[in-house]
């Protein structure tokens, strides 16, 4: 399996070459084009209950699509719905990533996707919901973002503060606390940041340069209100 990012920037596509018999899973609707040797199957990852819990708990799609090179080698082109960068990670069986609900684009067959519950404060204030996708296992993992993707590398004990709506994914060796952005409650919200996450290394934190919720609110003011 070989992968490369085409047209890096705001409107990228991911090309994945599959040898005969290889397969990948992707977010449903992610496939843009593929060789005629590829079969597209719809699959409820983790069984019916797993899919159901993922759908209702994380807001991710009920079905993932499986792209299988069943009739010979071929390639698939994948892209996400929103304009934004794509990053390819390699899971080695030891490192795990927590991914916010819209961050997953595709993964190798060896990647396991679970929904994982967060603690109460993180769920309530973190802006990611109570459930996140936990990616473990072995193989390629493709994440997408809204805007550009930025990698923050944290050494053991090193801290970094991220606005919660800009999170894409982070390694499970990091830990984070939710805090007010400033010392006062009023200033926290008038500063426009509200709550922030204080991450503590070691590990990687991937953030997106644009905030989908903020963008939505900005677009909404231009949409004419219909009766």
């Amino acid at each position: 399996m070989k992968s490369e990012i085409l047209y890096p920037g705001a409107f990228p596509m991911v090309r994945i070459e599959l040898a005969e018999g290889e397969k990948i899973k992707a977010e449903s609707g992610a496939m843009v084009a593929c060789s005629p040797t590829i079969d597209i199957e719809s699959k409820m990852e983790g069984g019916f209950l797993g899919a159901l819990s993922r759908k209702f708990l994380t807001g991710e799609k009920f079905f993932f699509q499986t792209l299988r090179a069943s009739r010979g080698a071929g390639e698939v082109l994948l892209a996400s719905t929103v304009p934004g960068e794509v990053v390819i990670l390699e899971l080695d069986g030891v490192n795990e990533y927590m991914v916010q609900k819209d961050g997953f684009l595709a993964g190798a067959d060896g990647v396991t996707i679970d929904s994982q519950m967060q603690s109460m404060t993180r769920g309530l204030l973190g802006g990611e919901g109570f459930f996140l996708l936990k990616m473990s296992g072995k193989g390629m993992l493709v994440l997408n973002s809204f805007g550009a993707i930025h990698k923050i590398e944290l050494k053991p004990g090193q801290e970094y503060i991220v606005d919660n709506s800009h999170l894409v994914a982070w390694s499970s060796t990091t830990s984070y606390n939710i805090e007010k952005a400033t010392s006062g409650w009023v200033a926290s919200f008038t500063s426009g940041e509200g709550f922030v996450c204080r991450f503590r290394g070691p590990g990687l934190v991937f953030i997106q340069s644009r905030n989908p919720g903020g963008f939505g609110a900005w677009v909404r003011q231009f949409i004419p209100v219909s009766e």
Binding site: D92, G93, V94, N95, E153, L154, K155, P156, S171, T173, G201, P202, G203, L204
Partner: peptide, 19 residues
Amino acid sequence: IPPNALCFGDEFPASGIPC
């Protein structure tokens, strides 16, 4: 044998090295 831990250090990448 597959790795069973992640090791972090100054000269290692921030994501750690499987060991």
